[in-house]
Design a binder for these strands. Structure first.
Lengths: 200, 200
DNA sequence: TAGAAACTTTGATTGAAGTCAAAATCACGA
DNA sequence: TCGTGATTTTGACTTCAATCAAAGTTTCTA
C-alpha cells in the first residue's frame, strides 16, 4: 500500500482493465464513468477524499476513472485486500455496510435521473456538494465545482447547455453566485433546497 | 428462517420500516421502488427468484417492496444474518461479491436512465428479460411481463403512454408479438438487440 | 353474467430539454 | 503579453417524450 498522484485529466484506470488495485482517495476529486459505443457518456459518481474506488465483483474494472482535479490516492493490491477480508470478519462487515450505503445513494440517484426535472437535478446536485462541504468545514456556504460542465451534464443526464442555462437561472434568481465557473456561493440555501425537491 | 407468501399487489415492506428481515425470493416477482413527496415514483429493480431483498446499511428499509406477481419468499432475521456473517468469512465474501455485482448492474441502469432514448430503454429492458429467461429455460424466445405498464414506465423513467406506444412500434415492425399485454414473444432478437444499443 | 373498475392503447397537442450556432470568457504556452 | 484552443454562456429553433383526452380491453365482483 503506497501513495500515488494523478494530475488533472489523467486516467486512474479504464473499463476492462485488469482490476489489480483498489484506491482510496486522499485528496482531490475523481470521476467514474461509462461510455456507450456511440460516445454518449454517463458519469456514475464523483469520488471525494475518503471514498474507495475500483472494487469489482470479477477480474475487471467496469468503469473508467479519471482525475478531474489533481488527486492523491492510497493504492492497495486487490489480493492484500481480499486477504484482510477473509481473516478479519469485522473488516468485511465494515466493507459490506459501506457497499450497502453506496447502493442506497445510488438508489437516490436513480430517482434523480429517472424522475427529476433539469432544475431539480441541478439544485439537488448543488445541495449534495453544499452538505458535503459543511460537514468538513463549518463556514461554507460556498464550495468549489472542480468538474467541467460536461461532467455535470453527463452525471445528471443533461446537456452542457442545459446545465449552463439552469445555473444562470439560479444566478438571476439570486439563489447562487458564480464568482468563477468553478466556484459556487449559495446565497439562499433554503430556496435551493426547495427547488431540489419540488420544481416550479 | 421460514417461508412466507405474498399475493399480487401485497406489500413486503415499506420505506422507513424497521429493517428486521431479509428476504430471498423463491418464486414470483417483486418491485422495489422509492417515491418523491409529490407522488412521482422510481422503480429501482424487479426482484426475481434467487435475489436477496431488504439489505440495508442501517436500521431501516430505504425503499418500498411489493409483490407484482404472487411471491414466495424465505425470511431471515437480520440478526441471524449478521451472526452468520461474522462467524463465516467465506459467506461474508460471497455477500460482498453479490453486492459488487449489484452495484455493477445498477451502473448499467444509470446509463439507461441518463442517456438512452425511449426505444433503447424498452429494447434493453426486453433483452434483459429475454436473457434471464434463456438462462433458465433453453427454449424461450417468449417470456412473461408480470409487471404493469406503470411499473415499466417508472423503472425506465418514462410514462405509461410512451411505454405502450414504443411496444406498439416494436410490434408493428414485426420484432415482437404481444399475445397478451403481459406476454412477450420475440420474433427478431437480433433486431431487438440492435435497438437496445443504437436507436434509429 | 352484467356492470364497474382498472389497465392498456391510440390520438392530438404541448412543452422541456436537446440541437445547432455563435459569442464571450478563460487558460496556457510561445 | 498575445494568440490560440478549450470551455462556458447565450440565442434560435427543433424534437422527443409528456400531457391531456378518449376509446378499447381485461379483470373483478356483486
Amino acid at each position: 500500500s503506497h501513495v500515488h498522484t494523478f494530475g488533472a485529466g489523467k486516467t486512474v484506470f479504464h473499463e476492462g482493465d485488469n482490476a489489480e488495485f483498489i484506491y482510496e482517495i486522499l485528496e482531490g476529486v475523481v470521476r467514474s464513468s461509462k461510455m456507450l459505443v456511440d460516445g454518449r457518456r454517463q458519469v456514475l459518481s464523483f469520488g471525494y477524499p475518503g471514498d474507495m474506488i475500483g472494487l469489482s465483483h470479477d477480474e475487471f474494472y467496469h468503469s473508467d476513472c479519471d482525475a478531474v482535479a489533481p488527486v492523491k490516492v492510497r493504492v492497495f493490491r486487490k489480493n492484500a485486500f481480499s486477504g484482510a477480508m477473509e481473516s478479519d470478519p469485522a473488516f468485511c462487515a465494515h466493507l459490506l455496510r459501506t457497499a450497502a450505503a453506496e447502493v442506497n445513494s445510488m438508489q437516490e440517484h436513480f430517482l434523480m435521473l429517472g424522475r427529476k426535472s433539469a432544475m431539480e437535478k441541478i439544485a439537488s446536485f448543488l445541495i449534495t456538494l453544499l452538505d458535503r462541504q459543511s460537514v468538513e468545514r463549518e463556514d461554507a456556504d460556498s464550495f468549489p465545482l472542480p468538474m467541467k460542465r460536461a461532467d455535470i451534464a453527463d452525471f445528471l443526464g443533461l446537456t452542457i447547455e442545459t446545465v449552463s442555462r439552469t445555473l444562470t437561472v439560479l444566478r438571476k434568481k439570486g439563489i447562487i453566485e458564480l464568482p468563477t465557473a468553478q466556484k459556487v456561493h449559495v446565497l439562499k440555501p433554503l430556496a435551493l433546497r426547495d427547488l431540489a425537491e419540488s420544481d416550479l
